[in-house]
């Protein structure tokens, strides 16, 4: 089926098989390997993407469902200068990365949360990550990285540095 969608800020027109998942389509057909396969049943969040700004598990969608939508994967998350976003930098600084397999999904989950709630407390952060499994970190440093990013963005908003 012929579909048109936006992938990491670029419009794509492509034939998408109807019988494969969006996860397989992104990874195997489009080479977007930052999207990971951890379970294929919608339980781990390693395959998470932002679909029109919403955090969804791409293993639970079919490829044609991308039609007309806007998809952001970890590859599409970059600062204006093409470098790291503040959240990505805090993931590094706060030790939120161990093996890194969950990391793309975790960062996208963090962005989805901060878009809705710019001042989350620890409980709200933990709840927002409920669908993303991490076996290495115990999540704590991931909470720290998201909280630090939220504080920094708040400070910038009040000083007017960042719209």
């Amino acid at each position: 089926m012929q579909i048109t969608f936006s992938l990491n800020h670029q419009t794509i027109e492509i034939d998408a098989p109807a019988d494969i998942t969006l996860l397989t389509f992104l990874r195997e057909h489009l080479g977007v390997t930052g999207v990971k396969d951890g379970c294929d049943v919608g339980e781990c969040g390693a395959c998470a993407i932002l679909l029109d700004g919403q955090l969804v598990n791409s293993c639970q969608l079919l490829a044609p469902q991308a039609d007309g939508r806007e998809i952001i994967t970890i590859e599409g998350l970059r600062a204006a200068d093409g470098g790291l976003t503040d959240l990505q930098r805090h993931f590094i600084d706060d030790g939120a990365v161990q093996c890194g397999f969950c990391t793309p999904g975790m960062i996208l989950a963090g962005e989805a949360l901060l878009a809705k709630n710019p001042t989350p407390d620890r409980e709200e952060i933990a709840d927002a990550l409920a669908g993303n499994l991490c076996r290495c970190t115990g999540y704590i440093q991931i909470f720290d990285a998201i909280a630090a990013t939220a504080r920094e963005r708040q400070a910038q908003t009040t000083t007017g540095e960042r719209p």
Binding site: G34, E75, L84, Q88, G100, T103, P104
Partner: peptide, 9 residues
Amino acid sequence: DALEKVLGS
């Protein structure tokens, strides 16, 4: 190795 992991690369 954190950089390549947060970039998804």
